[in-house]
Design a protein around this nucleic acid. Structure first.
Lengths: 213, 213
DNA sequence: TATTGTGAAGGAATTCACAGCC
DNA sequence: GGCTGTGAATTCCTTCACAATA
């Protein structure tokens, strides 16, 4: 089954934003909305929202707008979050632990089910109900879990090693917080988040005194 | 002093990537590079790199390429990271603490110098050499510090409150980890990082089995 | 009447390709 | 000869504007 048109990356990156907006409306008991109202709520244009949604189907009712519950269900399915995801965590340092305990993940359907570290003092322990293994064991341990997504939260110099172990363990989707380019087979998707880069972005705008956020 | 052309946001967002690449080359003692080599290193096209750099000046030498040290210095100045930045942290929960202790910030020139929380058990303490104040004190405390950037690491429901306190304290640049749209005056720049959205992005690609990272 | 979905127009970003310079 | 900087061509994304429809 294939989609009619090629979907722009920019559209995909906005799907989560729409889902968040709809979650909020649902929570507030709002039954219907419109591209105009969503645009207002999110800070985009109505035309863009309609065009984005149209890539995936016809979810609206002309003259009426969108049914919040219905649109939410549709978008959640498209994003693949109409289910729970099991996540493997590499690195249980400060950042890794914060992610392990982060409620925002659970709320959106992501459960960390297994963790890895190379520190012998941590290996074997159970934190937040999650057992910590040696990273070298990842290739054997991962297939025994239901984890499909991996998060790398180790220093740059160990990131590739953790990444390789995750790939050997069968993971195809990896979120990395290491400021380092990771080499992977073509069928593995890596998404990088570089926290310092986000601050540098602010530094640029603070220095060059433009606005826009 | 104003720039010749209007600089695309996409170009700005790549500056940090170039700086990272140059830092690595510097570290490895590489003296010169070229748009071709940088493209290879980073995973972009050579033409795009040349075009990006050309927005800011003529840093290269035809026939030779770029001098690593020189280009690094130029880009660091443009990004505003040829100095250290003082940062205020709002929220010293798991994530906040991880950011407080995060070495990647210090390495790129960002020092957390003051922290805020609403938990009386934390207020008054000093963690990692950083004193924790009550968030309500931010408007008075911030002006006594050199902090220009703020990081919000509190749950969504408290984010606006922290944001308001930061703005009242004079901060104009804010990085927020709360999955919540923040309302600010026009002269305040807010950059949002939503960790769950990053996983949702992976979820989309894992579900729809395309690649591209 | 109100609002969608969409083709067409317009704008932005990327890639091409090459003149000019070291 | 090799590589930059940059106009021109192209591709990609957004906005406009309106026919279709509940």
């Amino acid at each position: 089954m294939s989609r009619p048109k090629k979907i722009p990356g920019t559209t995909v990156s906005r799907l989560s934003i729409y889902v968040r907006a709809l979650q909020k409306l649902r929570q507030d008991g709002v039954v219907t909305t419109s591209s105009e109202k969503l645009a207002e709520q999110i800070g985009l244009t109505a035309a863009q929202i309609r065009k984005d949604l149209a890539y995936f189907g016809q979810f609206g009712v002309p003259g009426r707008g969108y049914y919040v519950e219905n649109l939410y269900t549709e978008l959640a399915a498209i994003l693949g979050i109409d289910r729970r995801w099991q996540v493997a965590l590499g690195g249980v340092g400060h950042l890794g632990y914060a992610l392990l305990a982060y409620n925002g993940f659970k709320k959106q359907g992501f459960d960390v089910v297994v963790a890895f570290d190379k520190d012998p003092a941590k290996v074997g322990q159970t934190w937040e109900g999650v057992k910590i293994y040696d990273i070298a064991q990842a290739p054997e341990v991962l297939p025994q879990t239901e984890a499909q997504l991996g998060i790398i939260a180790v220093p740059a110099e160990n990131a590739q090693e953790v990444c390789d172990a995750f790939v050997a363990g069968g993971l195809k989707s990896i979120l990395s917080f290491a400021p380092e380019r990771l080499v992977t087979p073509d069928d593995v998707t890596v998404k990088r988040v570089d926290l310092a880069m986000e601050l540098e972005w602010l530094s640029y705008y603070a220095t060059n005194a433009s606005s826009r956020g």
